[in-house]
Amino acid sequence: MKLLRTFTKGLWEELPPFRLVLGLCPVLAVTKSAETGLGMGLAVIFVLTCSNVLVSCLRNVIPRKVRIASYIVIIASFVVMVELASQAFFYKIYESLGIFIPLIVVNCIILGRAEAFASRNGIIPSALDGLGIGLGFTMSLTVLGAIREILGAGTLFGTQVMWSSFRPFTFMVEAPGAFISLGVLLALMNAFSKTQQS
C-alpha cells in the first residue's frame, strides 16, 4: 500500500510541473506539440528511473560530501545515453528537442528526486518514485503540448483534429503561449483542489 502511494503521488499530489512547479524550462520550451512533449517526457522517465535506482544502490557507498557530484555524473551518463539512443532511433524527435535533451542533466526534478528520495530509500521504492514522478511529468507535458498544438496548429500528434475552416492561433505555439497555457492550467488545477478540500 505504501509502495503504491510512492508511485501514485507523482501523478497528482506531487505532479512535477503543476504541484511542485519544478523543471519548468523544458515544460515551457518543448511543449510546442504533443509529440515533442511526449518524447521529452519519455526521456525524463528513463533518466529519472535509472538514476533513482542507481543512486539508491550506491546510497551507502557515496560519501555525503561528494554526493551531488556523484549524482550529477550518474544523471549525465544516462542523459548522454538517451541522447545517443534518440539520435540513433528517433531522429525526428531528437531534432525537434535539440538542446533540451542534454539539458535534462540540470533538470531540478531529477536531482531533486535523487537527493530527496533515492538517497534515503531502498531500490524498489526509488524505482517506483522515479516512474511515478516521470509519468506525471510526461502526462503534464503531453497535455500541455496537446492543448498548444490543437489551438496553435489545429492538429494533434500531427493529424488534423479541428474543422477545416479553423484558423490556427499561432500565438499558442510560440513562447508567450507556453506561459499563458501553463498559467491557466495551474489556475484550473488550484481551483479544482480548493473545491475538493472544502
Partner: peptide, 22 residues
C-alpha cells in the same frame, strides 16, 4: 581518500559505459 576513490570509480564506470554505448 575515500571521496576521491569513490568519485574516480563512479566516473570511470560511467565513462566506460558511455564509450561502449557510443
Amino acid at each position: 581518500a575515500h571521496m576521491i576513490v569513490v568519485l574516480v570509480i563512479i566516473c570511470t564506470v560511467c565513462g566506460v559505459a558511455l564509450s561502449g554505448f557510443r
